[in-house]
Design a protein around this nucleic acid. Structure first.
Lengths: 149, 149
DNA sequence: TTGTAATAGTTGTTTTTGTAACTAACAAGC
DNA sequence: GCTTGTTAGTTACAAAAACAACTATTACAA
């Protein structure tokens, strides 16, 4: 069956998805079990932890995530007192989001877990492989998806 | 806010997910619009195209996909006459799946699209970067997720 | 000032997924 | 033979995601 066909098992989007799924799994379990968070909630949390104060749409832009996903994540995070919202008086459409002390604590905790997790993940990659990998991923993530026919 | 904290924007699972999503998008559109397929259906199709005849669980193992997802994808593919099922007489629990001529045609078409798509995707990566990337992804995808505390 | 468009965010509905429980067929030990 | 366990695959129900339509507010131009 396999002549010298194009090798779909090495197809980049496929490999990327596999690697992404496998390498997210164990960490996902941590924020799920420890704080009952979903992926988007963790992303909102870490963006707020990193940047301090953002609006929902700023997070959406940075994390390339749709606004409805962000909206619902923020809802759950405020319900659980990880995040507080504050209306902007200059522009009352806008809400500024910040972490509560509890949110800060969760962020600090998960950041450390992430640090250790990543170290374990890349344990059998060389330094050179790692930096090549990162560079390539950044490039791929930023490239506008090629138009097609 | 950012001292010399661990940089979560460069967190490997995050980068992998972003790269995977962005780099799947345009191709996804092709199999969706052209054949009404979802991602798992496309994966089943390409595994059958590549290996000729497989059972649902063989595909599940190779593609690291849960059997319910495979089951539903196979259903839709048979409904649309891309795939046929045949019971194994030695073990009647098992069903062998193969592509219909229509499935073969879709496979051949999409494989060519994939080939060109990937070429466009990696256009600004060097050969060395590409092979390093592939190697790293394979390693990550195969590594059992590290246990955690 | 008022009408049109744009932006921030939410809500409702439909698809898809995840999880668990299920049926059917086989295997192996007693 | 029968019980117990395992494997292949399906189905049912709950959780999450995608998509579209919506409110509220602001911008801006006729």
């Amino acid at each position: 069956m396999e002549t010298n066909e194009f090798d779909l098992e090495a197809f980049l989007p496929y490999l990327l998805n596999q690697a992404a799924e496998v390498s997210s799994l164990a960490f996902q379990q941590v924020y799920k079990e420890r704080y009952g968070m979903l992926r988007t909630e963790w992303r909102v949390l870490f963006h707020l932890g990193l940047y301090g104060r953002l609006t929902a749409s700023e997070i959406g832009t940075r994390a390339k995530t749709h606004k409805t996903k962000i909206s619902r994540a923020v809802h759950r995070l405020t319900d659980r007192r990880f995040v507080t919202r504050a209306r902007n008086d200059q522009d009352r459409r806008v809400e500024h989001l910040t972490l509560t002390p509890q949110g800060q604590a969760a962020y600090a905790d998960l950041r450390e877990v992430a640090r250790r997790y990543e170290a374990a993940l890349v344990a059998d990659l060389t330094e050179a492989q790692m930096s090549a990998l990162r560079a390539a991923l950044v490039k791929l993530a930023e490239a506008a998806p090629a138009p097609f026919t």
